[in-house]
Amino acid sequence: MKSGSNLEKVIASGNPAVTAELGPPMSADGHEVVKKAQLLKGFCDAANITDCQTAVVRISSIAAAAIAFQNGLEPVMQMTCRDRNRIAIQADLLGAAALGLKNCLCLAGDHQKFSAAGRLKGHPGAKNVYDVDTCQLVGILRKMRDEGKQEGGDPLEVSPRFFIGASWTPMGDPIDFRPVNLMKKVNAGSDFIQTQGIYDMDLFKSQMEKACNLGLHERTAVLAGIIVPKSAMMLKYMDSSVAGVSVPRSLIDRMNKAKEAAGDDKKKAREFQEQEGIRIAVELIQQALEIPGIKGVHIQAIEWESAIEGIVKAAGLYPRPTFPES
């Protein structure tokens, strides 16, 4: 075992892995993390704790991950390259490992301009760091773990032993480069990969085929990203505006139908769409798990953690495997 994390054990056992996502709050309210952790506990093998996603200031990934961990939910801490240089990154990794965290997902991070959206003022004028990029960050984690060295070469008496993850946008532009992109992240040392949300399973399948032809599925565990749709509007937005996401017309039509079935009743329209969204998510999970090379799913129910239980159960992925304490 590289890290001995629960997620690593599930993947090693050959069971399809399930990860979910927990977004920390925009305030110092640790109870919010506990509440969300309780919703997810038992229904996933580990949950990503986002690192100021969309560049919005929230409880830090490490702190929220530690809270989740104390409350019985295995976290995947996230580490973006946006906010820290290699000194801060490594210091935080050492601290996270000392707190008992065992999974880390490496990300470039959303640009700070995303922080000003809707009613949020955010910090679009912040200075970003990007001392290292995702590939380099993965390499730093691997070097710390496997060589017992800091990036600069100084020895680590006790190495942080992370199960190392990276994200992959399989259908992003330029699409024919994306398998190479994945290869670089795997070569750098990614033990697992979580993909951008996928709706177009046919296109994803063809990208996975290319990844398999490069032998990557044998060197890393690719977890297909599933973003649970909440409304027709959300699907349309994701299709038109979210990078690397295309939503087949048929899915948007299904959601539209669910909405229309409620007539003028807005509350019902919301409920019907949510129910349809959960059905779609379950179908996507099942389709993704059929794709050769896929080792699990990463289910994101954004600000809707309560949906995970039902989805995981309906997808036949409950109960989650458990392992005796080693």
């Binding site: 390259c81 946006r82 470039a108 991070g109 959303d110 640009h111 301009k113 995303f114 970003n128 990007y130 990029d133 995702t134 590939c135 380099q136 994200s167 992959w168 946008t169 992003g172 532009d173 330029p174 480069f177 190479v180 992109n181 670089k184 951008q196 505006s241 979210v242 990078a243 690397g244």
Partner: peptide, 27 residues
């Protein structure tokens, strides 16, 4: 916008940068 050295991030959209539709993604 992120001074990336190893390829595009996930934000490339139709050849444009996630920062703005009128900035080419250099990757």
């Amino acid at each position: 916008a992120k001074t990336l050295m190893n390829g595009p991030c996930g934000g490339t959209n139709k050849g444009k940068c996630e920062v703005s539709n009128d900035i080419d993604c250099v990757w």
